[in-house]
Measured scan of single mutants.
Amino acid sequence: NLAEVVERVLTFLPAKALLRVACVCRLWRECVRRVLRTHR
């Protein structure tokens, strides 16, 4: 699944970079939201 791969990669990025990549597309924005939720 593409979303799972994107989420896996996003887990390695710092928070500032996550906010930046959330603007790329809807899929990435949803993935960033899930990554941020799991880090809390």
Rank of each mutant, 00 (worst) to 15 (best):
N1K: 05
N1D: 04
N1T: 10
N1F: 03
N1W: 01
L2Y: 01
L2I: 11
L2H: 00
L2G: 00
L2S: 01
L2W: 12
A3S: 10
A3G: 11
A3M: 13
A3W: 15
E4M: 12
E4P: 06
E4D: 07
E4I: 02
E4R: 15
E4K: 14
E4W: 10
V5S: 04
V5I: 08
V5C: 04
V6D: 00
V6P: 00
V6E: 01
E7T: 07
E7Q: 11
E7I: 09
E7A: 12
E7K: 13
R8A: 05
R8K: 12
R8S: 03
R8W: 06
R8L: 01
R8V: 02
V9C: 05
V9T: 02
V9G: 01
V9P: 00
L10H: 01
L10T: 05
L10Q: 03
T11D: 07
T11S: 08
T11W: 15
T11F: 07
T11L: 08
F12S: 07
F12T: 08
F12V: 08
F12N: 03
F12C: 07
F12G: 15
F12E: 05
F12K: 04
F12M: 13
F12A: 12
L13T: 05
L13A: 09
L13C: 06
L13I: 14
L13S: 07
L13R: 05
P14Q: 15
P14G: 15
P14C: 08
P14F: 10
P14A: 08
P14W: 11
P14D: 11
P14R: 15
P14M: 06
P14L: 07
P14I: 06
A15T: 10
A15C: 06
A15K: 12
A15M: 08
A15Q: 15
A15V: 07
K16G: 09
K16L: 02
K16P: 04
K16D: 01
K16M: 02
K16E: 04
K16A: 04
K16R: 13
A17G: 10
A17Y: 13
A17M: 14
A17C: 13
A17V: 13
A17F: 12
A17W: 14
L18K: 15
L18I: 08
L18Y: 08
L18V: 08
L18Q: 12
L18W: 15
L18G: 09
L19R: 15
L19C: 07
L19V: 13
L19D: 11
R20D: 01
R20L: 14
R20H: 06
R20S: 12
V21S: 06
V21M: 13
V21E: 03
V21P: 03
V21Y: 08
A22C: 08
A22I: 05
A22V: 03
A22L: 02
A22F: 09
A22Q: 05
C23Y: 13
C23A: 11
C23R: 14
C23E: 14
C23L: 05
C23M: 14
C23H: 13
V24E: 02
V24I: 15
V24F: 10
V24R: 07
V24C: 07
C25F: 13
C25W: 12
C25G: 13
C25Q: 14
C25Y: 10
C25M: 14
C25P: 06
R26Y: 00
R26F: 00
R26H: 01
R26W: 00
R26G: 01
R26T: 01
R26L: 00
R26D: 03
L27F: 14
L27W: 15
L27G: 11
L27Q: 12
W28F: 13
W28I: 15
W28M: 14
R29V: 04
R29W: 07
R29Q: 06
R29P: 01
R29M: 05
R29K: 11
R29T: 05
R29E: 01
R29A: 03
R29N: 05
E30L: 09
E30S: 11
E30V: 07
E30Q: 11
E30R: 13
E30Y: 11
E30A: 07
E30C: 08
E30G: 08
E30F: 13
E30W: 14
E30D: 14
C31G: 10
C31L: 15
C31I: 13
C31H: 06
C31D: 00
C31N: 04
V32I: 07
V32M: 06
V32F: 09
V32Q: 03
V32A: 06
R33M: 07
R33K: 11
R33W: 04
R33I: 04
R33G: 07
R33T: 06
R34T: 03
R34K: 12
R34M: 05
R34Q: 02
R34D: 01
R34H: 03
V35A: 08
V35Q: 01
V35W: 09
V35D: 00
V35P: 01
L36S: 06
L36H: 01
L36T: 07
L36M: 12
L36C: 10
L36P: 01
L36F: 11
L36W: 11
L36E: 04
L36N: 03
R37F: 06
R37D: 07
R37M: 06
R37G: 12
R37I: 06
R37K: 10
R37H: 05
R37Y: 05
T38N: 09
T38Q: 11
T38C: 13
T38M: 14
H39A: 14
H39M: 15
H39Y: 13
H39N: 08
H39K: 13
H39S: 12
H39Q: 13
H39V: 15
H39D: 08
H39P: 08
R40Y: 02
R40D: 11
R40K: 12
R40S: 09
R40P: 07
R40L: 10
R40N: 06
R40A: 11
